[in-house]
Amino acid sequence: MKKIISFFLLQIIALNVFAQRPETNVDMADVMRSNGKIYVVIAVLLTIFAALVLFLISQEWRLKRMEKKLNEHILNSKNNQ
């Protein structure tokens, strides 16, 4: 796990090396980025993603609780028989 995570972190550093763009007439969102407003989009995306992950994790915990409860119930009913 550590190796995998550090591998991708190193990639982020490497991306700066390629931060040159040939000058062309093609429209890109340069203005948006020079204003720094692209970060607003990233913030929105990250918020949505965080909510999604929190939802998934809460479902995870709920399921874990129910699985445990049911297992105990099955064990108890086996012992009573």
Partner: peptide, 11 residues
């Protein structure tokens, strides 16, 4: 999400 928005792409 972060690099998809920030990384340089071909024009």
């Amino acid at each position: 999400i972060v690099m998809g928005m920030l990384a340089t792409v071909p024009t």
